Amino acid sequence: MHKVWEDKCSPNKTLGHNPFLINNMDIAINRIAKAINEREKIVVYGPCNVDGICSISLLMLLFKYLNADVEYYISEDKQQNISSKVIGEHVSMLGASLIISLGCIIESIEQENFIKKLGMEVIALNNCDVKNDFESTLIKYKKGCISTITFKLAQAIAAYYNMKSINKYIDLAMIGIYSGNEGIVSGENKVLFDEGIKYILKTNNYGLRALMNYTGINVANEENINNMILVMTPTKNAVGTMDNARIVVELLTTNNQYRAHQIVKYLNKEVNNSLEL
């Protein structure tokens, strides 16, 4: 797959670095392809922030495009470890055989054995220095935030399936990158951010278009990206942060224009209420 990427994509510098140069990417792609082709249940597991939400949404859209059997789970915990309680009480109930964890890693051999006994495997994406003494696949890429790593994974999946339209998801990666870096963008993050901000006004994502229409955004700049992130950031209220995060995922993955506008109205109302507190 490394040669396939170099042959097809190396002239296009906007795609960034070759994803197959990232350690364990080939292993991850072969396992994901098996899950997709054999209709295994995949669960995307990510954190309750805009970086995580954009990453989850990107993979959900990609996997649905490939007709994969996929669900997602949003963790409300801020910790960087996978929760055994969540795996045992929630993810296993979804019937998962493969977990793709975004930013959360296995914390112990005991936890890995527990996950195995439940009939599941884990592919974990991470951008921090972590030791990997486990059999589970770890994709570590310190050059980017979670949205960057997720987009690199998406690029590799696209190369495997000979997809030519992977850049249509770069708008989600761009927003996640900007939120995850608190506005400071450099390196591989900057490559994807610069390409994404050029694309955002032409997006085909109903949720992002509804956000821009409702808030009157017609110029692609950092101030307007910040305004979009403000609306997308899960708020703490009676509904709950995790439930609000699910609503944002629905916004970013819906194929219903009317539903997208209704969600944006709700999110704007939530933001205004939180600012008044």
Results as ranks from 00 to 15, higher is better:
N37T: 11
M93W: 06
L62I: 05
K85G: 12
N127T: 03
S57L: 03
E76W: 11
C104N: 14
V122Y: 07
S101A: 12
N132R: 09
L102N: 09
E135Y: 13
A68G: 01
S97I: 02
I42S: 04
S57I: 02
A33D: 13
A68S: 03
Q80D: 15
D77I: 13
I139T: 07
I100M: 06
S136P: 00
M93Y: 10
C48W: 03
Q79V: 10
Y161L: 00
K78N: 05
Q79F: 11
L66G: 01
I115F: 04
D133E: 12
P47S: 12
L153V: 08
I100F: 07
I82V: 03
C104M: 15
Y160W: 06
L94W: 07
K131M: 00
A124K: 15
N81E: 08
A154S: 08
N30K: 08
K85V: 14
L118C: 05
S147F: 12
G95T: 01
N127D: 09
C104H: 14
K140V: 11
Y45N: 12
S147T: 11
F151Q: 05
C48K: 00
L153T: 06
N67T: 11
I146Y: 12
L118K: 13
V130E: 13
I166M: 15
A68V: 01
S55Y: 08
E71R: 01
K117C: 00
L62N: 03
V43D: 00
E112K: 08
G88T: 04
E121D: 11
